[in-house]
């Protein structure tokens, strides 16, 4: 049951990608659909990580909220970079801190690492199980718990609902 869910999600992703690339010509749709089906059956053992997505109305609502918050964080981080780069004194105070996450699924952890990289002043350097090592451009709280509170929490509560 679980393996078929991952395969189905992989098939839908490939088919939507083909639809966006090739348009709605019926011949090309048939060829793309068959190719996507064959590819998703071939890689169905690798598609297990997609099976951890919770499909429900609530997780869809949280996905929209997550994208919104992510875009706001991306714009804020760019203004932050602009402020630091244009200042002639280069106001940086860098260091590598360690944080913990509560997420257990692989896909959720990948998404969390990507989100941390694109938010203000942080860059994921290494992930070991539930520990992330993060290069922070302006270390305000070297303690592990307060660093977790400052960096991870705002994304984690959304990703927890979507990926479990």
């Amino acid at each position: 049951m679980k393996i078929w869910k991952g395969t189905l999600i992989l098939f839908l992703l490939l088919f939507v990608l083909w639809l966006l690339l090739a348009g709605t010509d019926p011949q090309e749709l048939i060829v793309g659909g068959i190719t996507a089906l064959l590819l998703s059956l071939q890689f169905s053992s690798k598609a297990k990580i997609f099976a951890e997505v919770n499909i429900s109305f609530r997780s869809f609502y949280f996905l929209i909220l997550y994208i919104f918050i992510f875009l706001i964080a991306l714009i804020k981080s760019n203004l932050d970079v602009a402020r630091r780069v244009l200042d002639p004194k280069l106001p940086i105070n860098p260091g590598i801190v360690k944080v913990k996450t509560k997420l257990s699924s692989k896909l959720g952890r990948i998404m969390l690492a990507n989100s941390i990289t694109l938010t203000p002043g942080t860059l994921t350097v290494e992930t070991k199980d539930e520990n992330y090592y993060i290069h922070w451009i302006d270390v305000t709280s070297p303690d592990i718990n307060s660093a977790t509170e400052a960096i991870v929490r705002k994304f984690e509560k959304y990703l927890e609902v979507i990926f479990g």
């Binding site: 970079v81 602009a82 780069v85 280069l90 940086i92 860098p94 990289t117 002043g121 860059l123 290069h135």
Partner: peptide
């Protein structure tokens, strides 16, 4: 402008 590799990467990736 940034002084070391990690800070360069911060500016490079986000912007």
């Amino acid at each position: 402008r940034m002084p070391d590799l990690y800070n360069r990467m911060q500016a490079g990736t986000k912007a």
